[in-house]
Design a protein around this nucleic acid. Structure first.
Lengths: 240, 240
DNA sequence: AAACCGGATTGACCTGAATCAACACCAGAA
DNA sequence: TTCTGGTGTTGATTCAGGTCAATCCGGTTT
């Protein structure tokens, strides 16, 4: 059923350049990007446009493609056996979704757009073809997967304040890595979604954000955030 | 510096059969296991024995090998920039460690034995050789990595009670998948280590364990645990 | 045996976050 | 314009879990 999701109007994060994308190397080796005199041309692959509040894919549906986020923000929602949902992560521009497809054959979460999203679609079949550079392709794919296979270090830990701080700094770092503005950005998540991700309540998120605002650690206007003087270590110290 | 770690005497989990190991397929394709008339022989690769409290590898050290746990339990410890440590996960027999090596070139956590541990060691160089079955090997490796690359779903969420319950059920399930006893086992973690992993305090872990014991959901004697009537859904219901 | 030590348990108390409730703000509809 | 519904903020109260402290228990040493 289509969810009644009246979204904020704000724009999208990105778009980013192909060169800043985690899928770039694989994309090139699969022949999805034509190289012209050393210049990278736009991908010739399929694009997927996803409107805010709608799904890129759903839990359990057959995983036929990898997706690279080019523009916008998505949330990954884990749907438990007994039906309730929890946001377990975000995907920012330049990141790759659907990596679990190789082993499971299906997607392990729902991927829901939080903003207008544009993704590049890379059918898994393209990776199995007998190209000339099978070795390079396999090697690139292994490196990509290996990055995601590192033991999870960014789980919500400590006080809510620490979790909010970590969340903001993490998001900021991920944006900056892609050449986007990591100092000033729109969170793209409602308070409800933030609370869900950080395993707490909307009121608490609101309070912490206001608190950080009053302390001039961040500036908050709507869902536009500016990081001013925010650091993980300062939080750890503040916690004694 | 060797840490003064007077460990519990208890035995180790395992050993398990090669056939129950996540690395099995890759091991065979790398020629580490000789097949004889359909029977799987013992691996001909190097073994690593790790005494309780000592390291299999450390954060940042060059990742030259994959490790498959054959026997015993390890904890993965994330060491932050400012020096404090947090247990972020466990490794049970049959599981593979060091997958982040392909991308990082070094290990992302410390791996510390909680029991007498035996690991199989698979040098990464063996995976890069021009064997006859490069394709199969790459494919197997991709499937293995893909399994670990799924968005993290087992993070500590909800009340401490739910986290303890999830922890016990998760550990139980992982043991059973390898043919070990998932109903009755030794946790292998001190209360301190459990508290660290579940992001709470020793006293709280102790209280919850005793509470579950009194309710006949589990039976606790020292670090030997028997699961009696424990289910995630029951916990969710109990939480209203 | 007694003394000792580290881990585990239990109790008393306090604090951070959840809960319940009111209200502010904004956008779209009438 | 006013009304309405959804989102966010703020306050009052409650409660789960953190903190501090005492005690217990099994293993080791003397």
């Amino acid at each position: 059923m289509p969810r009644p999701d009246s979204r904020r109007k704000g724009g999208s994060l990105g778009p980013i350049a192909c060169s800043a994308c985690d899928l770039n190397e694989i994309c090139r080796l699969s022949g999805l990007i034509a190289l012209e005199g050393g210049h990278t041309r736009q991908s010739t692959g399929t694009m997927r446009v996803v409107r805010p509040g709608t799904h890129l894919y759903r839990t359990g549906s057959p995983a036929n493609c990898l997706y690279a986020v080019r523009q916008g923000l998505l949330k990954l929602v884990h749907v438990t056996a007994d039906g309730d949902e929890h946001t377990v992560g975000l995907a920012t521009p330049g990141e790759v979704l659907g990596l679990e497809g190789f082993s499971l054959g299906s997607y392990a979460t729902d991927a829901v757009a939080l903003q207008p999203v544009i993704c590049c679609e890379l059918p898994l079949t393209m990776l199995e073809q007998n190209g000339t550079r099978v070795r390079e392709l396999a090697s690139a794919l292994i490196r990509l997967l290996s990055r995601a296979a590192a033991p999870h270090l960014g789980s919500p830990r400590g006080s809510i304040r620490e979790r909010v701080t970590s969340f903001l700094l993490d998001l900021s770092a991920r944006l900056e890595r892609r050449g986007l503005d990591g100092r000033q950005f729109t969170i793209g998540l409602s308070r409800r979604e933030m609370a869900d991700l950080l395993d707490t309540r909307i009121e608490t998120v609101s309070r912490v954000m206001q608190q950080l605002h009053r302390e001039h650690a961040i500036r908050v206007r709507g869902d536009a955030v500016t990081l001013l003087r925010l650091s993980r270590s300062a939080e750890a110290v503040a916690a004694h």
